[in-house]
Design a protein around this nucleic acid. Structure first.
Lengths: 191, 191
DNA sequence: GACAGTTTAGGACGATTGGCCTAATTGTTG
DNA sequence: CAACAATTAGGCCAATCGTCCTAAACTGTC
């Protein structure tokens, strides 16, 4: 299992390149150049490009699961957890202003390509949705929890898209403050 | 200038294909097949793929300008005009749930490709921004007009992204109602 | 040190890409 | 009808794509 390192390197490089350039625009040559291995070696670990995509989606999925699990532990209050989610657009601001949201942009690209793995990519979006829904439920918003989850998710996608388009830091900060105010309103309503 | 028809057909087909498949994923062969002309003929009207992209962006730009101008005439109240903008996510719901927002997805793709025309694509976003800003100004939101414009634009991009991801009609309708309530609040505040 | 399995390198494949050229066709005008 | 420009068709180009194969190098075991 010593090759796990090479495989890991490939997935890491592909993850990064798919994010920065897009899936379609990234070639085998790009990835193998990044990892500094031959394209032949490449084929030993992954038979097709789609296999790499699936591996990247798996990685992103587990990365996000780990992130959410961490927030579950570090933030005891569901409101604080939602705040963690909201503030990732600030935490990752530099990358978002350069390449957008990794989840949203991949989902959109695969949808346009009508790619077999588009449903798998959507799962990451669903992961966020379910997690947010649970937080809003714990906050006391029972029948509105999923709606609020979608609202926050939608908000984050919009901010990411415009951040990429206009590269306006102040806009991002302003939007975060606004949605946090909304969140406060929700919290007090639900009591 | 009889060839204007052919050129027009090419641009129309490219516009549609770039929207549905993405710019990178659309080949010369795809477009010429759609217009039913030879690839050679193609070259007569456009030297490079980038030239077609520029023509498509120009078309989209003028299409949107025409749309906004129409709203300027049909809707006398700036609030009604903003409402027109908000409701395009319902008007174009079917297409958005299949391919996302034409403006947002192209902007994102070109940004990732670091394409020379990405700034030109951004202009369409700026067109919306400026128009919305003007409407909010007429509504009485002087120093907040541009912020509100970005807010509505960001909102529409988020709704489009999630509509594509989850294909949930009810979500779109719900979000429209929410933002319209927000708009009502803004209108009364500004008086 | 021979052996078996794992991992790597490098190149070849058919297909497709964007770009380009030339010849034939069309349409217009003198 | 002749001459001309505008338009179209079809094929060629080098480069690159994803895919695949084989031989060499490495690894650990007996």
């Amino acid at each position: 299992m010593a090759g796990a390192t090479t495989r890991q390197q490939i997935v890491d490089a592909a993850d990064d390149l798919f994010y920065r350039q897009g899936y379609e625009a990234t070639s085998f040559a790009d990835i193998s150049a990044a990892v500094k291995i031959s394209r032949g070696n490449f084929y030993y670990h992954f038979k097709t490009k789609d296999e790499i995509l699936d591996a990247v989606i798996d990685k992103r999925n587990s990365d996000r699961e780990r992130l959410l699990a961490m927030w579950n532990e570090t933030a005891l209050d569901p409101r604080d957890r939602i705040e963690c989610f909201i503030k990732i657009v600030i935490t990752n601001q530099t990358k978002i202003m350069a390449y957008g949201c990794p989840v949203g942009t991949l989902t959109t690209e695969l949808a346009k390509l009508d790619h077999p793995s588009k449903a798998r990519a959507n799962q990451i979006m669903t992961l966020f949705r379910s997690w947010l829904t649970r937080q809003f439920e714990e906050l006391g918003c029972h029948h509105q929890a999923d709606n609020h989850a979608l609202h926050v998710l939608s908000w984050s996608q919009g901010v990411a898209t415009l951040a990429l388009s206009f590269r306006d830091e102040a806009f991002v900060v302003r939007e975060v403050h606004q949605i946090l105010e909304w969140l406060t309103g929700i919290s007090s309503e639900a009591h």
